[in-house]
Write a protein that binds this DNA or RNA. Structure first.
Lengths: 213, 213
DNA sequence: CGACACTTTGAAGAGGTTCAACTGGTGTGG
DNA sequence: CCACACCAGTTGAACCTCTTCAAAGTGTCG
């Protein structure tokens, strides 16, 4: 049973926002929507992983967020998307008509609260991101990202990392070389292992957590 | 947010959220609430200016946001404040009981939408902050902050800067010395003037905007 | 006027970037 | 089935922006 203000589980959110929608597949690096386009849909990752990003005029890219199975993205206050979204690997994405969602929110208080909750969670994550970019060193940022991926993909020690080094760099406000060197140094210190480029084993989670706390 | 009905002005928001509340005064650097405290109120700046921040264990500080007259802050999804808030100068702050706000939101769709709108605007600002910290140089960050202050305080060319250099640094992810040097170099280039420490004159706004676009 | 906090400036240093070369894994074609 | 090409990732070295540490300057308030 839901409290008047809190919706406590992802599945509860999904139940409230269960609106039929198409569920197309996108392949690796395919654009789902672009910055400045009309925000006619809200999206949910069914399988795979998605990145959302913004670009400066000169090409500098900042990845805003990574989205994993179950996550919603593309929810906007205004009429236009403020970020672009691309699949990081083959992904299936549920499309929810924005009009259907606002109709639902207008009729049902719990749906309106679910939307508020999604937005507020996005804000919390963005605030964490700000703290990371403003005040943490490269090694702390990388450690934090690995732990975040572990948590959000429900991985134990061994992670499937769906993003390239460039994606990690553009999320962390670093360069690809710094990310690579930092991962190597974490490996040298025995905190992680890198069996392959897109797999990371967390060997000393406690130590990683100490870096990010 | 999702609804076709938009609330377009701050005053409209205020009308919807007009709940009687105390309006205490805080003096410079006084804490309004602390990170981890129970979030029993939502706050609105009546006059003055407020900063919200988070601290790492070792004392590194990241300012999350500056709040000016009319701005709401301290709105939380969960039970606890995730940031601390302090007055940057003498300020009067309206306190709104959170319970009163959620009652109102439960009864009136437009109030619920107003809360969503506030949250979504906070998210947009936080995303802009992420882009700034992740991918902009010191001079671009400082220029961006000055323009932001100008816009939010409705200043034309001459700005009243309510924050210290340390506050600017902790918002921009820089050090106090870098902020100071950057302001000096903007002055040397003729883009701004610094008649006194807490006053800035924007002499070439176009050039400043070019840096931040 | 003097004390104190904040700001500015200077010089040296570090962390991260840049540019460049090399490595390794993957896919393709002979 | 191997050779080769290609691309992402790694490593190295030089460089640069920003930081750190130190000192001097400025403004404010008793």
């Amino acid at each position: 049973m839901l409290s008047p203000i809190r919706i406590d589980t992802v599945s509860a959110l999904d139940a409230v926002l269960a609106i039929p929608g198409a569920c197309p597949r996108f392949c690796r690096d395919e654009e789902i929507f672009g910055e400045g386009e009309s925000a006619d849909y809200v999206y949910q990752v069914v399988s795979g992983a998605v990145r959302t990003h913004r670009l400066l005029r000169d090409g500098r890219r900042q990845i805003d967020e990574f989205h994993f199975a179950g996550d919603y993205f593309g929810l906007e206050l205004g009429e236009l998307h403020r970020v672009s979204a691309e699949a990081m690997c083959d992904a299936s994405i549920r499309l929810i008509r924005r009009g259907a969602l606002s109709d639902l929110a207008a009729r049902r208080g719990d749906a309106a609260r679910a939307i508020l909750r999604l937005t507020a969670e996005g804000l919390q994550r963005s605030q964490d991101h700000v703290l990371m970019l403003g005040r943490r060193s490269a090694i702390e940022r990388v450690a934090g990202l690995l732990l975040d991926i572990a948590e959000r993909t429900n991985a134990r020690a061994e992670l499937d990392v769906p993003m390239s080094r460039q994606d990690m760099a553009d999320y962390l406000g670093l360069t690809i070389e710094t990310v690579s060197r930092t991962l190597t140094s974490l490996q040298d210190e025995g905190l992680i292992a890198l069996p392959s480029v897109r797999h990371v084993v967390l060997k000393d989670r406690r130590a990683l957590e100490r870096m990010t706390a």
